[in-house]
Design a protein around this nucleic acid. Sequence first.
DNA 1: GCCCTAGTATTGGCCGGACCAAATTGGTCC
DNA 2: GGACCAATTTGGTCCGGCCAATACTAGGGC
Lengths: 245, 245
Amino acid sequence: MNETRHESIADELTDEILRGRYRPGDRLPSERELAARYGVNRGTVREAIKKLEQLGLAHVLPGGARVLPLEEASLDVIGPLLALNELPDAQLVEQMLTVMSALMKVAAQQAMHRASDEQIDTARALIARLRDKRLGPDERIQIRHELGRQFMTMSGNLVLMLIARALRMQIFAGDARTASLIHGADDQDVYLQRMDEALSSRDADAAVATLQAVIDLNQRQVLNALRAAHANGNGVDDGHRKLAS
Amino acid sequence: MNETRHESIADELTDEILRGRYRPGDRLPSERELAARYGVNRGTVREAIKKLEQLGLAHVLPGGARVLPLEEASLDVIGPLLALNELPDAQLVEQMLTVMSALMKVAAQQAMHRASDEQIDTARALIARLRDKRLGPDERIQIRHELGRQFMTMSGNLVLMLIARALRMQIFAGDARTASLIHGADDQDVYLQRMDEALSSRDADAAVATLQAVIDLNQRQVLNALRAAHANGNGVDDGHRKLAS
DNA sequence: GCCCTAGTATTGGCCGGACCAAATTGGTCC
DNA sequence: GGACCAATTTGGTCCGGCCAATACTAGGGC
């Protein structure tokens, strides 16, 4: 592995917290104790704990560090949450797709008005590549990913870009299998064609409608695949913290 | 100030990066040099830099730390960005409101279907309090804030909650004036009443429509107030990095 | 019995110096 | 000009130690 000591310690602690080994309100072991437990220097533990704090999983102050409830965490806990079990939690994936969908529609809407001609062309080129039948699955994911990013960029909305990027990072943080699961199968060529037309005529309504259709289709595919995989018993759901409040 | 050394150093470095003192691709001064510059121990500097890394403003690896482009940053840079000048950047605020609006609509939509009766009651109680004419401005902001949080909770969508929470934190990270600027003036009682009715009958369409109206109104108010304040010359915009790409 | 207070042990924040491995840098040789 | 190698710089980690703030506990007042 290419991880530094404090990174792997942070990962381990994150995992323990998310699995409920330490519950909200609990005190985390002291830095000195963790240092002893992991056989590292206290400074190294401090860096690991710093990351937990940034993740919003723990609040640390003189006297001790306490675990925070999941609802007060940072967006970046989603990655670890997805990686908690063999298979990502279907409910969480559904929630992510719901949000992504809403954000993409806003982005598309604004993109149609604000994008430069060059940006539109770039997007259309990506769509053209997606319509190539001889595309490998990994390439397809990659291009889709770039297309999504392109829409965000075209919207000119920094907040939108940052959120979308953060969500994407969470997906790619885990193993590649998770990423390929979350990106569904292939797209219907009809939709790609419609999207291309919407782009060339800068028709915002058409773009949003097509996006809606394509995303809905994708969402169904992904969730079906996920549930099927879960049913196959691959997803060992060993009682981690409930997602719904 | 109640800030630890590494926090204030992190804030200072963040500010310098966002102002363009260090540009994307630049190497940050070495830990040893920064330690000397701030007159602190290297470990303290390391903790500060760790935060920059978490903010997505710098990528650090043996050989040196490099500054990253704003587009690759974390959502949490929005707080520092808002606090960069006396007055928050109007364009950024507009972008935030746009995203918030979209998220709120998704939340309301889902909330109408999934919320428990108790949760609906809680939301309605908050609305009732908002309709009280004798409400101080700070209280109003506080209750609005709680109402937004309540909608997110009712949606049962963790991703939605985390994003909304992160955005809210960014607003409240700076001084209270920023927060009060971003929350507009008062609400039209008509809308509050309509929202109450939508809640009691669990009418998702009505809820979303009302939300749309109230948010649009609020957005106009906020942006007008902001632009007016900017025009008064309070917003010293000393050439920080451009937001739009 | 319960609540409040004072004192002590514990904990995080920070310091100084040190060693190693990876990356950068600058010079050399082709 | 470009490829190659050694010296230097830089981040990752370790050790041991001091201080101030917090948590815990024992004692006193009710």
